[in-house]
């Protein structure tokens, strides 16, 4: 599964740990929410970066207040049809001020990448093994007009139109 970040295919340096079992002392790890809740103190005592994985039914308020502890939050899409992580992503960015890596994982398909990116997701663990950075760039470039503000920096047409008018 290629991991795309900042428009490039990159290696995944994170170890994605299970609900239990030993953690390597110096490697960045992600853990499921339940483990974070159970082992919070020992996880925070580790020196290596920490990340968390949320299933689609684990919503932003569950970790919003703790977001600052994580270098990466992985949002798992069990199916591309499950749209809950889009709300989770926006809330983590816009309400809880999360500035770390927000990674989409699971059933992550090319045709949803732009939606995800607009909701503040910036790393994509793409399901298609053959996915390339080029395909990612194409997906980002297909649409250039946006009708509503979201978590990205794009200016919606509701404002662009009037900038254009003011400049006339």
């Amino acid at each position: 599964m290629p991991l795309i970040k900042d428009g490039e295919v990159v290696a995944d340096v994170w170890m994605h740990a299970g609900d239990e079992g030993p953690l390597p002392p110096d490697q960045p790890v992600t853990v499921p929410l339940a483990r974070w809740q159970r082992e919070r103190a020992s996880l925070l005592a580790r020196s290596a970066p920490l990340g968390i994985r949320l299933t689609s039914d684990q919503l932003a308020p569950e970790i919003g207040a703790d977001a600052g502890h994580f270098a990466v939050i992985v949002l798992v899409f069990p199916s591309f049809r499950d749209g809950r992580p889009y709300s989770t992503a926006r809330l983590l960015r816009e309400r809880y001020g999360f500035r770390g890596e927000l990674r989409a994982s699971g059933d992550v398909l090319r045709d949803q990448l732009l939606f995800m990116q607009r909701c503040g997701i910036d790393a994509f663990d793409i399901a298609d093994k053959a996915a390339t950075a080029e395909a990612w760039r194409q997906a980002m470039a297909e649409i250039s007009v946006f009708y509503q503000p979201a978590s990205d920096q794009r200016v919606p047409v509701t404002r662009l139109r009037h900038r254009a008018r003011a400049a006339e």
Partner: peptide, 14 residues
């Protein structure tokens, strides 16, 4: 209509 068009958060509702 415009606000909802390709709304990134609400395109995969239940």
């Amino acid at each position: 209509r415009q606000w909802s068009t390709l709304h990134p958060e609400f395109s995969f509702l239940p």
